[in-house]
Design a protein around this nucleic acid. Structure first.
Lengths: 345, 345
DNA sequence: GTTAGCACTCCATATCAAAGAGTGCTAACA
DNA sequence: TGTTAGCACTCTTTGATATGGAGTGCTAAC
């Protein structure tokens, strides 16, 4: 059987109505709400076909129909209404916080949550490989050595090392020189034993200090807890009756508290290749590949700070989320983000 | 009327039973569960008295009794059972993360939540005044200047300053010298216009760089967003039927997402003077002074890293929380924390 | 191909009865 | 005088039953 123009129109009405109300949609409602001028009986026949084709189901006999995942998929693929929502406030709001990436991302999560009434998450930018650009060791006082490491993405790490023995100025200078000449431009895989032995040979004694510094460098390059995740609006799940009672919703809330879980879900989505315009992707129900989200949909977008540095934005809501609004809002946001990141370049 | 020994015993049984079950407690249950060897009729008479005295109420005629806030207050003041719970796991768990305050505090929140089944929060240490201990400016490359500020609490701040004009090595050295000699040991209130003029005079031109550095220092000393808040187990609220349905619970969950709200609540509690042993305080229902928490109780403790540097730990659950367990667990934790902070001193 | 009509199904809601838990009161007992 | 057995009463909970409404599928007629 084929999807006739008329079937499409009916299906669209069912979906739109269901998105709004969350209640099964009956034939009479459609008969009245469309401009098809068909009686409810005719609509019923068409609906029967649509059910057979797998686009709608009845929760029980004598109830209206609700869309299936297949219907939602069709909807988001072909029926999205380009609303051109303007999110003009954002840029004004952000202006005074320029330069602080964490505050910016947190604000984006908040902004999206309050504009869409869904739960949102923003993952901080992930750097593909981290290389050492600059190392400096400085004595702060007799017992404390300040170690600063600048990575090639201009991220700065520092730590205070407590030392037992005082270290004289000369050694510090020597150490700084050796570390910088030996390690500059290397990532963690390139710092092999040979290089480390080389450093130790050049510095002679004082292995304690060297060991501590090398350990810090290793930690800095390998740790991935610089991956910050910002969320907002998790309690929005409770606003939707079809979710609020479910046990999965508690799990969802929990995942939003343990942000790493959420991030795993987001990371499990397809890797964007950056080719599409702003790369907005929609996952409906089981398409998320996460069982806890089987009654939810997730809309994701990838933002790009500059070449090779990406982060993700995700909006999670009930399957009957307002896809039009979410996609439009996200699109508008992404355009503005492009500008913002260009400016801060 | 006075609280006879017998009344106390009955009240205690009512409270204990209610803490466990969450259901109103009837006279027959008490008659059977205590060793008083009294008939339910006698218990009823006593319960009638206790109700008159304001310690218990009936949700409706023909229901058992539940404790009032007054009863809980009496309970936590005089009837707490010192369980001596051992939380031996904690120290082992934390061992390998020594020195990283944020990870430690997050872990404490998690630990408490999973041990008590309530929502927990830990506020990061707050430093009363921040003074400059050490400043260093270093050129990273032609366009980037790394500025590092070490505060007297050994907290390190850094930022990369983008500069248009290249700055020669000599100026950097001079700048570092001037900044350190002029600003060391000062807090933000002491950096007045005279001092700033003094610095500018000494450095001559290059006001752009100076301005940027001074602004950074100002920001670092005044910003209070170093106040981190770690939470865990917020979804535990949903485990308790008397809370899970309430609209206040959504607000609670929201507050745990917007951690600052939670922190305000915690800060609104009495200031500890550090005199009591570990300073564990219990707030029942409206004693929390927060309307959203009127059906909850909050147990707080103040931890001390060293003189003048405190943070707070809070456990929030239903009014019928297991006070014995929470207090014991917290006490045991605080003792261990004392050790941990002593070691890292 | 469309539609009116009708029997049918299922849910939601209200109503009612019965069971159970718990109380307060009274009268009797030690 | 304190304690207790007994009993009537209240209120909630639970299950059964009825009723109205919404929606359907099918058939027959247009």
């Amino acid at each position: 059987m084929e999807l006739s123009e008329r079937k499409i129109k009916i299906l669209q009405t069912i979906i739109r109505t269901y998105l709004e109300t969350g209640e099964p949609v009956g034939s009479r409602t459609i008969s009245k709400d469309t401009d098809l001028n068909l009686s409810s009986a005719t609509i019923r026949n068409e609906m029967s076909d649509l059910e057979e084709m797998g686009y709608i189901i009845q929760p029980h006999t004598s109830a209206g129909r609700i869309p299936t995942d297949k219907a939602y998929r069709l909807y988001v693929d072909t029926m999205l209404d380009d609303k051109k929502i303007e999110v003009q406030n954002l840029k004004d709001e952000l202006e005074h916080k320029a330069g602080r990436m964490d505050a910016l991302l947190k604000q984006i999560a908040r902004f999206l949550a309050s504009n869409t009434n869904y739960a949102t998450m923003v993952s901080g930018p992930r750097y593909k490989s981290k290389k050492v650009k600059f190392i400096q060791i400085t004595p702060v006082d007799e017992h404390n050595l300040l170690t600063v490491i600048v990575l090639d993405n201009n991220v700065v790490r520092n730590q205070i090392l407590k030392i037992d023995e005082a270290v004289d100025q000369e050694l510090i200078v020597k150490l700084n020189f050796i570390l910088n000449t030996t390690l500059n431009g290397l990532d963690v895989t390139e710092m092999n034993l040979a290089i480390i032995r080389n450093i130790k040979e050049q510095t002679g004694s004082h292995t304690k200090v060297i060991d501590a510094v090398l350990e810090l460098i290793g930690n800095t390059l390998t740790e991935d807890d610089d991956l910050k995740i910002y969320t907002s609006g998790a309690t929005n799940f409770l606003k939707y009756p079809e979710l609020s009672s479910k046990s999965e919703t508690t799990e969802l809330l929990n995942a939003f508290e343990e942000k790493k879980i959420i991030n795993n879900w987001l990371e499990a989505t397809d890797q964007s290749d950056g080719s599409e315009t702003h790369d907005i992707q929609i996952y409906i129900g089981n398409e998320t590949k996460v069982d806890t989200m089987k009654d939810c949909s997730m809309v994701t977008a990838t933002y790009k700070i500059h070449e090779g540095v990406y982060g993700k934005i995700g909006i999670i809501g009930p399957k009957r989320m307002d896809y039009d609004k979410v996609v439009s809002t996200l699109q508008s946001l992404m355009t503005q983000l492009d500008d913002i990141f260009k400016e801060t370049q």
